[in-house]
């Protein structure tokens, strides 16, 4: 396990393995996204109260899930970097921040668009919405800190610590709807609890959640590969790889 961990921690090994995976992974993600969206738009029955606007759930809920679980992954990579000083973990933290920020932004905006026809408002300062906005600013903070400390010693460590401190926001987002009165409804999608909707509405949601995860991983991988090329440009293996491009 530890051996495997160290092997994958080498930029060269990661670059080789991810090179084989990136095209099939991204293709599968795009295929599932397109299929899931077509399913959600054409075949899912309307909701008894919301009507057709329930179709927005299929892009909003996976984005909201990924916004949070992307942060967990960023914090995990940050912890690995701080403890083992594996450089690839720092690359991972750097590359996931803009991706996470864009997905959080997507969750916020699709939520606002969904809120207008269902709640009657684009936005309220309730606990769930506000803590998700804080999540967005945490991602932005990690990006901003990195660009402010560009190429200074300790930039990786500073970003990693900021990412870890932000973890406290995650339970706040998750339990905000249980701890306080809010406008936002409790979770619609969970793998551990009985679905709160019939199977013909739940299954396409599952497809979309998996598709978003696959998409997230493949795009993250593409960014990491670019960053490796930049950081390792003076090594022989990168020069050899470039020679055949």
């Amino acid at each position: 396990m530890l051996n495997w961990f160290h092997r994958l921690g080498s930029p060269k090994t990661f670059f080789e393995i991810s090179g084989r995976w990136q095209v099939p992974l991204l293709s599968l993600a795009v295929l599932m996204l397109a299929g899931g969206a077509a399913w959600a738009l054409l075949f899912v029955p309307p909701d008894y109260q919301q009507g057709n606007s329930v179709r927005i759930m299929y892009i909003h809920v996976p984005a909201a899930i990924l916004a949070q679980s992307g942060y967990v992954m960023m914090a995990g990579a940050a912890a690995v970097f701080l403890i083992w000083r594996i450089k690839l973990a720092d690359v991972a933290v750097k590359c996931v921040a803009p991706l996470g920020a864009s997905i959080t932004f997507l969750a916020l905006v699709t939520g606002a668009i969904w809120g207008k026809p269902t709640w009657g408002t684009w936005w309220v300062w309730d606990a769930r919405l506000t803590s998700t906005l804080v999540l967005f600013f945490l991602y932005i903070g990690v990006i901003a800190l990195r660009s402010a400390m560009d190429r200074q010693a300790g930039v990786g460590r500073a970003c990693a610590i900021l990412a870890l401190v932000g973890v406290v926001n995650l339970p706040v987002i998750k339990y905000s709807v249980d701890w306080w009165y809010s406008l936002h409804q409790p979770a619609s999608f969970s793998l551990t609890e009985k679905p709160s909707m019939p199977i013909e509405m739940w299954l396409p949601l599952l497809v979309m959640v998996i598709a978003y995860y696959l998409f997230f991983f493949s795009v993250w991988m593409m960014r990491i590969r670019n960053e490796i090329l930049v950081r390792e440009k003076n090594t022989d293996w990168v020069k050899q790889w470039l020679a055949v491009r």
């Binding site: 029955p45 309307p46 909701d47 008894y48 109260q49 919301q50 329930v54 759930m57 269902t118 709640w119 009657g120 408002t121 309220v124 406008l183 409804q185 409790p186 979770a187 619609s188 709160s196 909707m197 019939p198 013909e200 509405m201």
Partner: peptide
């Protein structure tokens, strides 16, 4: 101003 709150239960109109 009045806003509608809804729960997390979704179902088709027939159900």
């Amino acid at each position: 101003e009045v806003l509608a709150k809804h729960d997390e239960n979704y179902m088709p109109p027939e159900v």
